[in-house]
Write a protein that binds this DNA or RNA. Structure first.
Lengths: 334, 334
DNA sequence: GGATTCCATGAATAGGTATGTGGTCTGGTC
DNA sequence: GACCAGACCACATACCTATTCATGGAATCC
């Protein structure tokens, strides 16, 4: 709380000397050892801490990273945030965090963030940038997005290859003999992206996509899973039932699982279920989930490197990995 | 990015006029309508945003709240953070967030936060303040802790009544005929607090606590649940097995559930399981968890009110609520 | 017409830090 | 005894905004 000025008064030196000592440039300016020791000791005694406001005002680095997260409650995004936090602290950065209401752009929130002049922005999760304010995206400001890549050239993405992920899932399910597929998701951007990638992957292998079985609920996350289960269960025509369902996220899968189970169906006996993200609980549910693993640490680490690095920066796609667990099994003989 | 000075130059007025107009005090100073319009328009054109650094330097409100969270990955704490975020944005505050490594105090991290001079600190989750730096706790700075109350007079707590919660659980299990109890948790502060509260509640009702069955694993969260399951299963003396287990958190309970299930035991047939927090997935697991519900919104809202309010502030204890679900049932006849 | 009041705006300042420039000693050199 | 070189430090400034005080012109009044 004490300023350099106060310390200067107490030490009987000028503020500039204090600045040079505390800034670690004492030797460079040939300040007497005795003075250095005295100032250091006083600074310690009054619990000196640099005033970031003054730094910012001097046009120096703010050592702030603006984090815009789609949701705190999504365990995958939370894991990214956690790793981001770790890396940022190591690099001496503080995180100025804003969660998006309903995952949508909100000018007020972003402006609030901007007024603190963070050095870079990290968008955690997939969001629809097309609705975002041009003035936010336009400037030559580092914006790094972590999650499913969004096709926007103004944003540097650090994510996993969704097309490859979809192919992994489809290939796995096809190898188990599945021929009819369903998709459950919510109305968020990542869900949409994954649903599209899945349809592409299915088409690639010659499977026709029974469209009514691609269901993106208006509800969010866990509610979407329950909603999706209802949707599938209420279909009268059981003959057309898919034998495999892909959820666009583990939370959705877990809630879908519960909904399906409540109706007396069993996974994977009656239905195989795969999903995305590999949150911690995916391995702990019963049945455990076959899901696409996300390299959370590498994603966050890469994003932080991009921020601290100075040179060229380009979007990065990491290869996904499928963790096969209990929720997928051979299709029942038609 | 443009400053008031630049706008002033462009509009051919002094910076003070710009300040008065953009500060919404134009009328108060009787500035000509034409001037107001001109300045407003230019400010808009250059995308003016106030420089928080200058505000801070003027000794004004920083509009920053320092958030210290025990873990991003705990869904309960994440939910609190989410609600805190919502309320803070409404009040025009930004959140400067730091996650604690291993839930422990770290002077460097806190100092980083302090250098931005937040108006208040919110500690999300229960932490052991006794190990914290005196200089952080000493000053007359608002520090509000959300979660299981820690007995530290320097910190204002906003949490649920752990003693009452423990009584609710014990009463519920006792009513189901349970007479032998076990506790599973990890080595974190909230786990310890709850374990102690549970022991007190059991003692109150005259149940002796078989101490070996209060197991606080060194592992964290989900790992602790699996570890706890192993611990109980490896006990040779099945005769002394408790019929009801209380986990100190839903994540621990879910992982314990999986571990117990892998050994062929079924909840609640062979064992009743209760826990704390009522995270979203607690209702979606199979079996769903009987758990203490936390009034997340009220906790966060109350904390924010304490920050914005000016008068006296005192710790608040909210009454807990037990959500009875599938994981608890009548004890097997001894 | 000189004094008074109002109106619209300008100038100056504080706040904490880093840095370029100038100044004051001490001790040594011819 | 005048001069010089280091060694050590102080002064001044910029950064951006809110605010106090001051200024200038125009209109009003007796």
């Amino acid at each position: 709380m004490a300023s350099q000025m106060e310390i200067a008064r107490l030490a009987n030196v000028s503020q500039s000397v204090v600045s040079r000592i505390l800034g670690g440039r004492a030797k460079e300016f040939g300040i007497a050892d005795e003075t250095i020791a005295r100032v250091r000791q006083i600074a310690d005694a009054v619990n000196y801490q640099p005033n970031q406001a003054a730094h910012m005002l001097l046009g120096r680095k703010t050592k702030l990273i603006g984090v815009i997260i789609r949701s705190f409650e999504d365990p995958f995004l939370a894991a990214v945030l956690d790793e981001l936090n770790r890396r940022a602290l190591q690099a001496g950065y503080a995180l100025l965090v804003v969660g998006l209401e309903h995952g949508e752009f909100n000018a007020t929130e972003i402006r609030l963030l901007e007024s603190y002049r963070p050095e870079a922005f990290v968008v955690v999760g997939s969001v629809d940038f097309s609705r975002w304010d041009e003035s936010f995206l336009r400037r030559e400001r580092t914006i790094i997005q972590i999650g499913s890549p969004v096709a926007d050239p103004r944003v540097i993405t650090c994510g996993t290859d969704e097309a490859a992920a979809a192919r992994l899932i489809v290939q796995h399910l096809a190898a188990l003999g599945h021929r009819s597929f369903g998709i459950v998701g919510d109305a968020t951007t990542p869900s949409r992206l994954r649903a599209n990638a899945l349809k592409d992957a299915l088409r690639e292998r010659g499977f026709s996509v029974a469209l009514p079985y691609a269901y993106l609920s208006e509800a969010l996350a866990t509610a979407a899973g329950a909603d999706g289960a209802k949707y599938f269960l209420h279909d009268a025509d059981r003959a057309h039932w898919p034998t495999a369902i892909v959820a666009t996220g583990d939370l959705i899968a877990l809630s879908f699982l519960r909904g399906i189970g409540d109706a007396g169906l069993e996974v994977p006996r009656d239905l195989s279920l795969a999903s995305y993200n590999d949150i911690e609980l995916a391995a702990l549910s019963r049945p455990s989930l076959t899901t696409i693993h996300q390299p959370v640490r590498r994603l966050a680490a890469t994003a932080m490197e991009m921020i601290t690095a100075t040179g060229e920066r380009a979007s990065i796609l990491l290869p996904p990995e499928l963790r096969v667990r209990e929720s997928t099994a051979a299709a029942i003989a038609g």
